[in-house]
């Protein structure tokens, strides 16, 4: 039963680097973000930034998902 054809090396998933974006946004960027304080009057910039982080992070996940789907890689673990 060992007649499986020699496997091609699987395609590199460089777009998975997008998954690092949430870490940079929510963690690494904080020292800079924390310097700002309030924006537009009374809005804490850290809150605005963290909320935007959820949206941006979701966008990154969605992009990775869509690219994986296009490549037929959605089931690949």
């Amino acid at each position: 039963m060992d007649s499986t054809p020699p496997r091609r090396p699987p395609r590199r998933r460089w777009h998975w680097l997008l998954l690092v974006v949430p870490f940079v946004w929510c963690i690494a960027a904080t020292p800079l973000v924390n310097r700002v304080g309030l924006v537009f009057g009374a809005w804490p910039f850290l809150l605005v930034w963290a909320t935007a982080g959820v949206v941006v992070g979701t966008g990154c996940l969605a992009a990775v998902y869509l690219i994986d789907r296009r490549n037929g890689d959605l089931d690949r673990t």
Partner: peptide, 18 residues
């Protein structure tokens, strides 16, 4: 401000969970 961290938790978890 320290309490705002909760917004980061789920998205970071999801990025690894993917």
């Amino acid at each position: 401000a320290p309490g705002f961290y909760v917004l980061g938790t789920v998205v970071l978890f999801a990025a690894v969970g993917y």
